[in-house]
Design a protein around this nucleic acid. Structure first.
Lengths: 238, 238
DNA sequence: CACGGTTGTTACATCCTTGTTACCCCTGAA
DNA sequence: TTCAGGGGTAACAAGGATGTAACAACCGTG
């Protein structure tokens, strides 16, 4: 649990930057671990029990992209913040599409980085990942049985796919998740330029069962051109 | 952060001038770096973490124009002051259009140059470029999601193009940005003598979403005959 | 076999974004 | 003052993105 002292992994080949980041993390109460190579970093990330990974994109021993992809495949809910050297907009888009939780453009100030770190950890902590139940505005879902219990006493049942979608979206509460990412993570497909409305259809059915209105969402918000976003119970108003 | 000791790169082939400028910068508390060739300069500029670049336009190893263009492509928010020998009006115009933050015509006094340097750094420091959020009078924009949060609690959403325009204008806060420059940098077009009102239209829509009034602007000011200018939260009154 | 539930696809209506045009107002110079 | 050009924006159009009804395929059960 990140609540006490978050365990954070720093994968960054530039010794000076790595040093600065690690010091800042330690000063903020984290328990940092550091690696300079990508392959080392991936191994450590998958073996240890970390609360957060800071990942440089330009690395010896495996491109940052592949590492991010590998981490996501094995630990879908492990938060990753990408450190990108090139301010290229393309990188930002690809990174977020691949499931990075945030990104920071070099050169960055440590103050800014730590603000991001706090924000991501806060979001994860606030996410309704309490055991088997996901809370949303107006009720909650038991992800084992798929049973939906509304505050007013009504109930409903989710199908298997719908549960998986809820799970994936919920552990990224507040963040836009693209259709591609959903197809990749929930369906296991890797669509180059998707041309199916499957995701939309499932979202529609979910919204119907959850009593959510697309034009005034309290649970699943459409982020135009970006994907869908689960709203944590608190944030639902805006 | 430029606030303490700005790291400044001087790209200038004339050894005497370079020497004088570097000395003056050092005396003013900067940490200067110098290169005599254009290609060297570009490499150093993109690898190092500088707060400011002083760029001569007439150089061995790559025209100053190309270097300025390359810097802008990779680091849209790195301030560049152009040193131009020819007092030709064309150069001045082109330079500002390509995104130079200021220009100084040779021969210049060191006093004048340092005044420009200070002005540019002050402007950049005051600019709201804190990570993903842009603050403006009355609220702020998250440039990842496009969400606008107003101080009074209301909210709005920006489209992709609108976000890009905000980003470009905001990292040049206080400076007039011409329509041509916007078309070039945001749209990637290179219009000889523009004949479209597209930019105006987007500005109008932005102003509407931001709650800004053209005749009494607090966010986006029209600089008559020059373009548009983002007003940093403090400078909004004028 | 029929049946109900789940999943995916297709088709269509709708909304949002973006660029263009047209019209009118305003500015600044003479 | 007049006048030419710049600027604000309503209105329109085209294209892409999204919501969803309807249908088809599948699957396990009785």
């Amino acid at each position: 649990m990140p609540s006490s002292r978050p365990k954070t992994l720093v994968i960054e080949d530039d010794a000076a930057i790595r040093r600065g980041v690690v010091d800042a993390l330690r000063a903020a109460g984290h328990i940092p671990t550091e690696t300079a190579r990508g392959d080392d970093g991936l191994r450590v990330a998958l073996n240890g029990e970390f609360d957060l990974v800071l990942l440089d994109l330009v690395l010896p021993g495996g491109s940052g992209w592949e590492i991010l992809r590998a981490i996501r495949a094995a630990r879908p809910d492990l938060p990753v913040i990408v450190l990108t050297a090139c301010g290229a907009e393309d990188d930002r888009v690809s990174g977020l599409q691949l499931g990075a939780d945030d990104y920071v453009v070099k050169p960055f100030s440590l103050r800014e980085l730590m603000a991001r770190v706090d924000a991501v950890l806060r979001r994860v902590a606030a996410s309704p990942q309490t055991g088997h139940t996901i809370s949303f505005a107006g009720g909650e879902v038991d992800t084992t049985s798929g049973r939906v219990s509304f505050a007013d006493g009504r109930a409903a049942e989710l199908s298997e796919k719908e549960i998986e979608i809820m799970r994936y979206l919920a552990c990224r509460a507040g963040k836009a998740v693209s259709r591609d990412e959903l197809l990749l993570r929930v369906w296991g497909l890797n669509p180059k330029g998707l041309q199916t409305r499957t995701v939309d259809m499932h979202i529609t059915r979910l919204r119907e069962k959850l009593g959510d209105d697309p034009s005034n969402p309290r649970v699943l918000r459409t982020m135009w051109g970006q994907g869908y976003c689960f709203l944590a119970p608190r944030d639902e108003a805006h």
